[in-house]
Design a protein around this nucleic acid. Structure first.
Lengths: 206, 206
DNA sequence: CAGTAACCACACCGGTCGGTATACTGTCAG
DNA sequence: CTGACAGTATACCGACCGGTGTGGTTACTG
């Protein structure tokens, strides 16, 4: 089994060595401390680079934020590829559950939950250049759930995908906000039961 | 049926007229635009009050933030009381579903999702004076779910409460981050199915 | 050799942030 | 009458914010 839905993520842009360091520093600082908390000076200092270089490479803090989220999206997809290669699910149902299993490992030792949810809250402005990356990530996951559900022959794959998404996002946010460390495991169990009880189409798949 | 778990929210403090205006202005501004975006000057201006008065009443922005969240918690509980009085559920199961039904109305026309989740992300610092209010709100909801599940005679009420909480929080966050306007209705349907299929204790309730 | 991209060092900008200081006015209870 | 309290008005603070400008150095490349 493979993932079915194309990730809309643009390929990694070519960066100069200093550009790489800036993006790496920004990624850890933004995720660990929050986007608004971290100033460009702190990023430049952590990357051992002058602010001038930072602005030559990325143009503005907002565009650096967008680059950070695109990078994080690529990292997440690479992580999923690795996880799926390990677990090697053989059915669409197993693929969905593998995505939930991967969530546990993804969150392990992070404490700050989902960088995309956090960014969405911190940026707020709907026209921020990073917003498409954020909603794109969530829409991809939902679309992948739906595609797998359809491939599995489940009835009403759209509704099933919606419910899976709620469990997934609920785990991410409860893990952080409510300090519910067991959240990903709970979500995985809930997803498994959800699939087990979901009605199937009687070979009349469209 | 009534709610079973005591809300840990302190009663509303007595405020001077100017204090009330400050808290009201802060509440709408913080929720609408975000905590970090809104400065104390903007709050003082909106409340038609000098900054001096604001600091005389609340001491610091951080304590004003905590007061805002406590106020929002009280407002939410009053809202729940009203909703439950309207729907008047007669069983613990109906009570749980009424809480999900209330979620739809709570989110209607807000667009910014859950003020507590947002605040948790924006504040980040675990020792912020507002953090106990945030996790307290989430812990109350989970405890209430568990108490109702136990009263209904469901097996493993802790696990059931965890799953209900994930659906609830997932709806809140997907509504905002993924612009999923149907999220609360999806959560309500998922909760109903979850309860319908959940095993019961055979009159051996402790 | 000339040109150019990538970088450094550093100084500077206007604006906003949370928070404080000073001085004065109205109101109301003991 | 007299405080104490709630409030006004205004000016100010240092720190930090995102962002720009100048000028110089290295290294690769046509």
């Amino acid at each position: 089994m493979t993932l079915l839905v194309d990730r809309g993520v643009p390929a990694a842009p070519r960066l100069t060595p200093a550009g790489e360091r800036i993006l790496a520093a920004a990624s850890t600082l933004f995720y660990e401390q929050g986007i608004r908390t971290v100033g460009v000076d702190a990023i430049a200092a952590a990357a051992d680079v002058t602010k001038k270089t930072l602005y030559d490479r990325f143009g503005s803090k907002d565009r650096l934020i967008a680059a950070y989220l695109e990078e994080r999206d690529r990292t997440w997809h690479r992580f999923l590829d690795d996880q799926l290669a390990e677990r090697n699910p053989t059915t669409p149902e197993a693929m969905i559950l593998a995505l939930f299993a991967a969530l546990t490992d993804w969150l392990a030792g992070s404490r700050n939950g989902c960088g995309f949810i956090n960014a969405s809250v911190e940026l707020a402005a709907p026209d921020h250049p990073a917003m498409p990356v954020i909603v794109g990530q969530k829409r991809w996951l939902r679309a992948e759930f739906e595609a797998q559900a359809r491939a599995a022959g489940f009835a009403d794959p759209g509704e099933l995908a919606d419910r899976l998404l709620l469990l997934h996002e609920g785990a991410l946010v409860s893990y952080r906000v409510a300090a519910m460390t067991s959240a990903p495991e709970v979500a995985a169990r809930a997803a498994a039961d959800l699939l087990a009880g979901w009605p199937r189409l009687l070979r009349t798949a469209r």
